[in-house]
């Protein structure tokens, strides 16, 4: 049952991801990305991670992509064809990024020593434990569990990320502010 749902959703996610990259129309790309986010949310639910699933929908599909649509609508972009020189530079870069990401995923799934395994009660690395469905509801689904992990074990990264976000907010409001001398 779980396997059937997983296969269907994974297939849809991969198809939508490919369509997103291959579309010329920015609006279609954005919508296919939303489809990918929903597929990921379904996979999180299959793993018992309800909190992660709803946050995925609320944050990515509900907020970030709406802002992206907002930008696409405001600019109403007809994508300019990039010239060959730019493409010649971008293609090797893209290929390198893709290969690096694939190796990183393989490394994480293989459970190389040195990567943290933050879920207590399982000897498997996170990725493998989740793939095999060894993550219990109590460990991944409950908000309390996520909060306790976030505010004890991962407190430093959490605070660093919030400082980064604060800097981004300040930067945005400085850029958007009306300057009296230029107005």
């Amino acid at each position: 049952m779980e396997f059937l749902i997983f296969s269907a959703v994974a297939a849809i996610a991969i198809a939508a991801g490919l369509l997103m990259v291959l579309q010329r129309n920015a609006m279609y790309s954005a919508l296919f990305l939303v489809v990918v986010f929903f597929c990921l949310a379904v996979i999180y639910i299959l793993l018992g991670a309800y909190f992660l699933a709803v946050v995925q929908v609320a944050v990515y599909a509900g907020a970030i992509m709406v802002l992206m649509l907002f930008v696409i609508m405001l600019l109403n972009v007809a994508w300019p064809e990039p010239d060959d020189r730019v493409l010649g530079l971008l293609r090797p870069l893209g290929a390198t990024a893709a290969v690096t990401f694939a190796m990183l995923m393989a490394w994480a799934l293989a459970g190389t020593p040195g990567l943290p395994s933050p879920l207590p009660g399982t000897s498997l690395p996170v990725g493998a434990a989740m793939t095999l469905g060894r993550v219990g509801e109590a460990q991944a689904g409950h908000v309390q569990e996520v909060a306790v992990t976030l505010f004890s074990k991962y407190l430093l990264p959490f605070e660093l990320v919030s400082i980064l976000l604060l800097a981004a907010i300040l930067g945005a409001s400085v850029l958007a502010r009306k300057r009296p001398d230029h107005a």
């Binding site: 609006m27 709803v54 609320a58 509900g62 907020a63 907002f70 689904g141």
Partner: peptide, 25 residues
């Protein structure tokens, strides 16, 4: 009965705005 029921409602409600945005576009 979901243990994150409020978040579910809020997340789905925020998806509803796509209808309006896409209709406009």
């Amino acid at each position: 009965r979901v243990n994150v029921a409020y978040l579910y409602a809020a997340a789905i409600a925020s998806v509803g705005v796509y209808g309006i945005v896409l209709a406009g576009w």
